[in-house]
Design a protein around this nucleic acid. Structure first.
Ligand code: MN
Ligand code: MN
Ligand code: ZN
Ligand code: ZN
Lengths: 149, 149
DNA sequence: CTATAAATTGAAATCCGTTTTCAATATCGT
DNA sequence: ACGATATTGAAAACGGATTTCAATTTATAG
């Protein structure tokens, strides 16, 4: 497993892109994040320490991370793209709490295999997939919370 | 299984909404559609026969269909909401061709059950889920098509 | 059947996350 | 250092979804 910094620098070199201080600052801040932030959320976080970096640069850099495999782009249906660190993070799917927004991760090898079987019976070549379970997390349903309507 | 027209009229009555000719026209056109149309696509289709009905009314009426269970809202990550008739249409998941856009449907009871198991181990109450497999349909990979980058 | 209150309509405006534009600046191979 | 090329941040543009609003239609009560 290559280090993220290396992987990013390799990607920049391969694409004849330049190594800038903004990109490195954004990378190290991003790698420190735990999970599933929107561009806006990440930008607001970053701005506290690095007020000089613009939203557009953050946006463009997160896209670069996705292109080179450092980040995964996620869409949980709330109208915002979200990013999570994918390098060194096994493939997984998500449980999304519709009440508090918490996101839990899971992996189920049987489901993965069944997906392959389904694709095979339709003569379909899988490139990617998404599986998300929406509902109430343990905390939210034990306190009688209802999902936001 | 109640008829869609009945179900819609019941819903309107329950919510003290009014029965209008536009709503009935949109309903009957929608029920005639086979699959997964965006609001725009449906509106353009409808306009051929009913040029007087505005986009806003179509949009609002499709939302009503979703609320009352006649339609399902789908999002296949292309930045547009899509609608399909759900009444009398069993639950199913989708195979989405990233090359030609074709959408195939499937149902797999084993996967559904495994999802329930996953939720149980996380003490999570499932309200809804989405499973989509993205890749190349039979036609597209047999002709050497690549997915749009 | 009115009259009246309330909901609906279509066009246009607005929203809001995402993406692009552009002139100034920074990077990097030579 | 120079010069070609890429990057940056602010602001504008984009695009689908939603809302506004004045005119119209519907449903209810008298
Ligand atoms: Mn995750
Ligand atoms: Mn379908
Ligand atoms: Zn919760
Ligand atoms: Zn195809």
């Amino acid at each position: 497993m290559k280090k993220p910094e290396e992987q990013f620098l390799d990607y920049l070199a391969r694409k004849r892109l330049k190594n800038t201080s903004q990109r490195m600052t954004i990378l190290s801040a991003f790698l420190r994040q735990k999970a599933h932030l929107s561009t806006e959320e990440f930008y607001l976080q970053l701005r506290k320490k690095h007020p000089g970096i613009g939203y557009a640069t953050v946006h463009r850099t997160l896209k670069l991370f996705a292109e080179c495999g450092i980040a995964s782009e996620r869409n949980f249906g709330d109208g915002q793209m979200r990013f999570e660190v994918s390098l060194g993070n096994e493939h997984h799917d998500h449980l999304v709490c519709t009440s508090c927004g918490q996101i839990l991760e899971f992996e189920n090898q049987q489901i993965e295999q069944l997906q392959v079987d389904v694709a095979k019976t339709h003569n379909f070549i899988i490139e990617d997939h998404r599986l998300e379970l929406y509902g109430l997390c343990s905390a939210c349903h034990s306190t009688g919370q209802q999902s936001v309507s």
